[in-house]
């Protein structure tokens, strides 16, 4: 380059710029120590939230026997068996790719202990942070006695990982004592998935129903009541996801200091 000439464009870094960090990626781990408490629903909702906001994501369904999440997003969500080393590699090595895309894990309840033991043993969180990847746990509460203690065990094991106490009022109802029951959990931020009317809930079942496309262009053959019910269920959930992202973005914005 000739002296005095600078071929850099306005977007190029100055000479003394620090090496660029990879873009921040989030790994959302949807989990519960017990089955049928709405974990796959949350993974599905998160996936549709990213599609609706025109962003990519990579998903993993860790139930090798009866996957519910993977068939809904074929091509984007991979079915893995965490009882095998190959399955662990397929998922965990991919979670650690710093490509800025969200990663969503639908953790099968029977793989819950194995997965969290593994990620502690291999230093997953430290490795992720080194690559600007932030794990977030969506721990699904349920009315069983063991659920709060499992949440405390996880919080103690991974104290630096943000956990959202997720409660699905349809899949794992707490009833009228909701606030009292949630109060015995660790003081995590909360994510509420509302209950759906049975009829409206049935509309969610077809594997080919995309909630993101539903919001943009509801199918005409769907009942108006069902459409309205689904929409009023989805909007506050997506608003919570958006609020989470905005809060994290603000917390990371050093220019506000």
């Amino acid at each position: 380059m000739l002296p005095g000439r600078d071929w850099r464009g306005p977007g190029d870094p100055p000479d003394n710029a620090e090496p660029a960090r990879p873009p921040r990626s989030y790994v959302y781990i949807c989990c519960a120590p017990h089955g049928r408490v709405g974990v796959s629903t949350t993974a599905r909702l998160l996936s549709d939230y990213f599609i609706a906001s025109r962003r990519g994501f990579v998903g993993f369904d860790a139930d090798p026997h009866e996957p519910d999440y993977a068939p809904r997003f074929s091509g984007r969500v991979r079915n893995v068996d965490l009882s095998s080393t190959q399955g662990q590699i397929a998922m965990i090595d991919r979670l650690l790719v710093p490509d800025g895309e969200a990663k969503i894990v639908d953790l099968w309840s029977r793989s819950y202990d194995r997965f969290f033991t593994l990620i502690q043993d291999i230093g997953f969180v430290e490795e992720a942070r080194g690559k600007n990847i932030e794990p977030v746990i969506l721990f699904h509460a349920d009315p069983s006695q063991a659920s709060p203690s499992a949440a405390y065990t996880l919080a103690n094991a991974l104290p630096t990982v943000e956990t959202l106490l997720t409660y699905n009022e349809g899949a794992a109802p707490f009833g009228e004592q909701l606030q009292d029951r949630l109060a015995v959990y660790p003081p995590h931020r909360r994510l509420k998935i509302g209950a759906l009317d049975t009829l409206v809930g049935r509309a969610l079942e077809p594997v080919d129903l995309s909630l993101s496309y539903f919001l943009l262009d509801p199918p005409l053959d769907m009942s108006l009541v069902v459409r309205a019910g689904l929409k009023s269920w989805l909007i506050p959930i997506f608003a919570q996801f958006r609020a989470f992202e905005m809060r994290r973005a603000l917390e990371e914005a050093t220019w506000l200091l």
Partner: peptide, 11 residues
């Protein structure tokens, strides 16, 4: 090398 495998060896 796979992070998972490296993690197993490190542990």
């Amino acid at each position: 090398s796979s992070f998972v495998l490296r993690g197993y060896v490190r542990t």
